[in-house]
């Protein structure tokens, strides 16, 4: 291991131009998501039929420039994207956190308990992973009243299983280490062994895993929005903007295309940033995913 670290040292510390751009996009996404809605005012109910279907870069009547053009009822697409960033950010991070918390509890429990408890819990994980996660999300969304909270919970439900699988694998492996056995022999409580000996092994693999999960969740949120199963109609979401532009693709391509480009950029950038994390912190811990 020492050898791979020393030989890989140079490439681990240097970032390529693509990677710097990716990190910049992720940072921009976070800043826009946090502060954007305070910088631009957007009222989803305020329509302006005189400015409908204007192409990108059009100067509007109030003197502002519609960078991404306007939609079928004259609303500024760029402003919608900025508002949608907040939803993506909130849904992405809270769903990922929720999924991580639940998955860690189940995974560590299974790994710790072993035997039939482990078999039972892991078969549930297997069954869930056998279904495409978007199918599960659509199925659940059909039953639950649409709200920001319900979208967060639904997406967390679709992503916990992989976290549980990874947590269980790391727990099982940790339990064979002598220092964990030494702690058990000395009479430490289960919670103390988990806290001191097992959880510290989990943080870095989990951080890397969640960076991948984050982009999947953002995509899934957009998909739900596109299908009309996501956030309520008055909350602008990236998927919903694309959905609303679908009928105008022939004469107003920008409504669906530009938010789509933004989604692709953000998701790819998070992926690249996750790869940087993996390379810097991973040291081969997470080859199995």
């Amino acid at each position: 291991m020492a050898m791979t670290i020393s030989t890989a040292h140079r490439s681990r510390s240097a970032l390529s131009v693509t990677e710097i751009l990716a990190v910049a996009v992720v940072l921009l996404f976070v800043v826009v998501g946090v502060a954007g809605p305070n910088l631009v005012d957007f009222n989803p109910a305020a329509t302006d039929t005189s400015a409908r279907l204007k192409p990108p870069m059009t100067m509007l009547a109030d003197g502002s420039v519609a960078w991404f053009g306007t939609d079928a009822v004259g609303r500024n697409v760029a402003k919608q994207v900025i508002y949608g960033a907040r939803i993506s950010l909130i849904v992405g991070f809270t769903s990922a956190l929720l999924a991580a918390a639940f998955g860690v509890v189940i995974g560590v429990w299974a790994g710790w308990a072993g035997g039939r408890t482990e078999q039972f819990l892991m078969r549930i994980v297997d069954v869930q992973l056998a279904f495409p996660s978007i199918l599960i999300a659509v199925f659940l969304a059909a039953f639950i009243e649409p709200s920001l909270l319900s979208v967060i919970v639904i997406l967390a439900v679709t992503r916990w299983a992989i976290v549980a699988r990874v947590s269980r694998a790391i727990t099982t492996r940790s339990l064979t280490r002598s220092y964990v056995e030494a702690a058990i022999i000395s009479g430490d409580s289960a919670w103390r062994v988990v806290r001191d000996c097992i959880l510290p092994n989990l943080w870095i693999p989990l951080l890397i895993l969640m960076s991948a999960e984050l982009s999947l969740i953002i995509l899934a949120e957009a998909s739900l929005g596109f299908l009309g199963l996501g956030t309520p109609i008055d909350v602008p979401s990236w998927g919903r903007i694309i959905s609303s532009g679908r009928n105008y693709l022939a004469n107003a391509w920008w409504i669906a295309t530009l938010p789509g480009v933004v989604i692709v950029l953000v998701v790819v950038s998070i992926g690249v940033a996750g790869e940087i994390l993996r390379r810097r912190l991973g040291r081969g811990v997470i080859t199995a995913i």
Binding site: R177, S178, Y179, E181, A182, A183, D196, C197
Partner: peptide, 10 residues
């Protein structure tokens, strides 16, 4: 234990 590298909490 046998494995000195694994017997202390890293």
């Amino acid at each position: 234990f046998q494995d000195p590298g694994g017997s202390l909490n890293p």
